[in-house]
Design a protein around this nucleic acid. Structure first.
Length: 600
DNA sequence: GGCGGAATGT
DNA sequence: ACATTCCGCC
């Protein structure tokens, strides 16, 4: 167990790398902040609540992938307060904490829907490769946002706020899961005052189990629609067919995630990316073993399967603009290349996945011999509203880069200093470009987009934004939606280094991307992609629109910072509902125990 | 309701 | 760092 996780501290202190080389960010796995811990972070806690059916009348997945509604703000606040021993907690405070996540890109607000937030799984997607030897059943997928499965019905997000409310009521599933006595149970355990419960041990135990929780988030761009393909399988080519509402059904299929029992109930995690692979010609079906919920802790992968898997995965990455980081290094396994012209980089170091992967990764780990691919840093410097307002036009400087910039310094230079005032600036020079070498859609780019979009300063405009009818430029606020909307045919062709200067039509709002001094060479490429994508996205406009300017500023500012803050690709398939059942008992048993902190 | 600055706490 | 608390603003 213990050896499963090691910290690859050297270059970047922020990675935890599993034995097999998969990595996930430190923030996603801090024992102290894990779900069972008292140091739990709010978003962990939220996920925790979300995955427990007991609390579905308080908070539940709803709407788009990763979206959840706090149905009972007071109760959530109370629970949170209980956990943190902050009796004074209330929704106002809690929501402030949630708002801090905007800048971290962990969450964003679903505009127009009360108490509705959305996890930015694009960013939070964590690694969970089921076939990787995790050593135990411990590796567990956790809160899986609702994912429609073949057998389950999932309600599409209501389009109107009012609808939300009503539907959220409906969410109380008609009987699938009994929620009887939840409140009582909950109530009994909650307060700091009554803290003496015998739970603490249990709690710890649970926490321990949960320890490695966030490997299981889902891949970006998981719309219900696409998800349907995953399980239903039957969604052929149409990559972005209009989401027709299918079987609106109240209950989210994944009210809970298969919590690994102590015995290690292992969720049948699969890479959604895999399944989602839009390319019909990659008819990969997960090997049975993969889908087995109980698959042993040591799962050895048949190379063929692996190949398929990786290929599919690779394809997915391109199709969905997933982060290249999704690719882990699998010694001895050669990943078939996705259809795309592969550029020229000589496959160096990594034994791993040839081409595209290698290249892609290159950016990240280029400098190190470490297999651990990414540098990770979430939290780009938020641009203060004042600052934004004040400056109106900030010349954002370009990028930050590689490793870690400390967000701390970011705002400090607000003074009239010579440089770009409000934004943290990092030496343009060290541009990630070189790292990335244009190789292509590195997540840098990708994350860039989605990041900024997702979290663009929503502040002022959020109310205005949603006019579906205004298919104007701009990136979609929902990062998920944003970047990952992809053309059926991956833009990969275009992505080759020699990108033709083609049609980037500059968009008024967006265009003015401040080019960093000397940044000219990097920008164009990015912009090109961005624009291409933007167009695509526009086509599919979700309806949510935000102003581009802030974002742009931000985007530029974060340029590289983002790379670090990127995506960890994670893949995990939410357990099929049926299978999940097995563990639900256990979960139920532990649910209340772990959610509130008895030990205050 | 929701936002984010600011001060403060751990 | 990550909240918590308070608060003015929209």
């Amino acid at each position: 167990m213990e050896e499963l996780i090691t910290q690859t501290s050297s270059s970047c202190s922020s990675f935890w790398t599993g034995v097999k080389g998969f990595a996930f960010p430190e923030w996603a796995y801090k024992p102290e902040s894990s779900p069972g811990s008292r140091q739990i972070q709010l978003w962990h806690f939220i996920l925790e609540l979300l995955r427990k059916e007991e609390y579905h009348d308080v908070i539940a997945w709803q709407g788009d992938y990763g979206e959840f509604v706090i149905k009972d703000p007071d109760e959530v606040a109370r629970l949170w307060g209980a956990r943190k021993c902050k009796p004074q907690m209330n929704y106002d405070k809690l929501s402030r904490a949630l708002r801090y996540y905007y800048n971290k890109r962990i969450l964003h607000k679903t505009k127009g829907k009360r108490f509705t937030y959305k996890f930015n799984f694009n960013k939070l997607v964590l690694v969970n490769y089921p076939f990787i030897d995790m050593g135990s059943g411990r590796g567990v997928p956790q809160s899986a946002p609702p994912v429609p499965t073949g057998g389950t019905h999932f309600r599409f997000p209501p389009s109107t706020p009012s609808e939300v409310l009503s539907s959220s009521e409906e969410l109380r599933s008609p009987g699938v899961f009994s929620s009887v006595g939840r409140r009582m149970a909950r109530g009994s355990v909650s307060d700091c005052s009554d803290g003496t419960s015998t739970n603490s041990e249990l709690e710890e135990a649970v926490g321990a189990e949960d320890r490695a929780p966030f490997r299981g988030l889902l891949p970006p761009r998981m719309t219900h629609d696409s998800l349907f393909r995953v399980y239903g399988g039957a969604n052929p080519a149409g990559l972005h067919r209009p989401p027709h509402r299918v079987h609106p059904e109240p209950l989210s299929p994944f009210p809970i995630s298969p919590l690994p029992g102590p015995g290690g109930l292992l969720a049948p995690t699969l890479s959604p990316a895999l399944s989602m692979t839009p390319t019909p010609h990659l008819p990969y079906t997960p090997s049975p073993s993969l889908s087995s919920p109980m698959m042993g802790s040591h799962f050895s992968f048949n190379p063929e399967d692996m190949k398929h898997y990786l290929q599919a995965h690779t394809q997915s990455v391109y199709n969905y603009h997933l982060s290249p980081r999704a690719f882990l290094h699998y010694p001895n396994i050669v990943i078939p290349q996705p259809h795309r012209p592969t550029p020229d980089k000589p496959p160096h170091h990594l034994h791993a996945p040839p081409m595209p992967l290698t290249q892609l990764q290159q950016g990240a780990d280029e400098s190190q011999q470490h297999p651990s691919p990414f540098k990770f840093k979430l939290q780009p410097p938020p641009l203060g509203r004042k600052q934004r307002e004040a400056g109106g036009s900030l010349a954002s400087a370009s990028s930050s880069s590689s490793s870690s910039f400390t967000g701390s310094g970011a705002m400090t230079n607000s003074g009239p200093a010579g440089g770009p005032p409000k934004i943290k600036v990092e030496p343009v020079s060290d541009m990630s470009e070189e790292d990335v070498e244009v190789t292509d859609i590195s997540e840098e780019e990708l994350s860039r987009d989605d990041e900024d979009d997702a979290f663009a300063p929503r502040r002022r405009h959020h109310q205005l934004s949603s006019s579906p009818s205004a298919p104007h430029h701009d990136d979609d606020p929902d990062d998920d939606e944003e970047v990952f909307k992809t053309p059926a045919t991956p833009p990969v062709g275009a992505s080759s280094p020699a990108l033709p200067p083609m049609a980037l039509k500059s968009e008024p709002g967006v265009a003015a991307a401040p080019v960093s001094p000397g940044g000219t060479r990097c920008i164009p490429l990015k912009l090109r992609f961005k624009r291409r994508w933007s167009e695509d996205q526009r086509m599919e406009a979700d309806g949510e629109r935000e102003e581009a300017e802030d974002k742009k500023v931000r985007a530029e500012g974060e340029e590289e910072g983002g790379r670090g803050g990127g995506v960890i690709l994670g893949l995990m398939l939410p357990p099929a509902p049926t299978k999940r059942r097995a563990s639900s008992e256990l979960q139920r048993a532990t649910a209340q125990l772990s959610l509130e902190n008895p030990g205050c």
